[in-house]
Amino acid sequence: MAAVCLSEAEKLYIVHGVQEDLRVDGRGCEDYRCAEVETDVVSNTSGSARVKLGHTDILVGVKAEMGTPKLEKPDEGYLEFFVDCSANATPEFEGRGGEELGTEIANTLYRVFSSEGSVDLKSLCINPREHCWVLYVDVLLLECGGNLFDAISIAVKAALFNTRIPKVRVLEDEEGSKEIELSDDPYDCIRLNVDDVPCIVTLSKIGYRHVVDATLQEEACSLASLLIAVTSKGALTCMKKIGKGSLDPESIFEMMETGKRVGKALHIALQKILDEEESLGTTRQKVGFLG
């Protein structure tokens, strides 16, 4: 991951600031940076979103393709995650450099979405055992400015909200052969219910306290963080310690409580923005990448 070099004095300054609930950029310990969310930014996808959280810039594209259901779940579609660490973010990602981080993030996303009910997979089934929709969720890291996981999860949720899958019907003739018919109307499509899609909240332990949405500088001061996936109802679907350090059991309990509280607020804010954008309709002026 993009690393910053901090002197001991700078680290001490950040740690002391966090102890006083005042961070370098003026936020409190439980405040997020200002986030920009825009959906439907790439026209070649079924759904896309771009999220800018401070200096972290994430682009997510969802493509729906037809595939065969997995053997163990014949009446469900599935999601595939791929994370691409672009060399634009940091020169370390050039070539195969970003692969390790990419697979780590993808694995975390699989784990976060492993809970049944986060996305209604049954609605992705076209006909059991033969055809289903596979949603390829491709995450592109354009810029790393700390707190990658949270930004990615927000972008994935926004992109899934934006996803429109064309409606298809299965026609069966007398001989039992099946035919798939695509609806003529391009606006005739299914939307996913994203109410239960979790968001990741990463809590970084700095000194005796923990902060949400750490910047790169703050991440350099933190030895261990706890990653929590929270649904809008406050249920946890994933929990993971990241970093080289260890955590006190008591602080883990505190972090879980904070994570739940912050996560719920995050969901409400995100849903409000997404609904607002939706209400603007198709004539909305797109900001895109030059905004």
């Binding site: 784990r111 049944e116 406050g234 946890l236 929990m239 993971k240 955590l247 006190d248 309990f253």
Partner: peptide
Amino acid sequence: LPALNQVSAVLGGGRGGDPESWGEALRLGL
């Protein structure tokens, strides 16, 4: 790490419910 009482790894997923339930699991596991 029992002598230091520090948790060095937490890795979990699934439909676990609210933080209280996970906290209970954590206590049991520790």
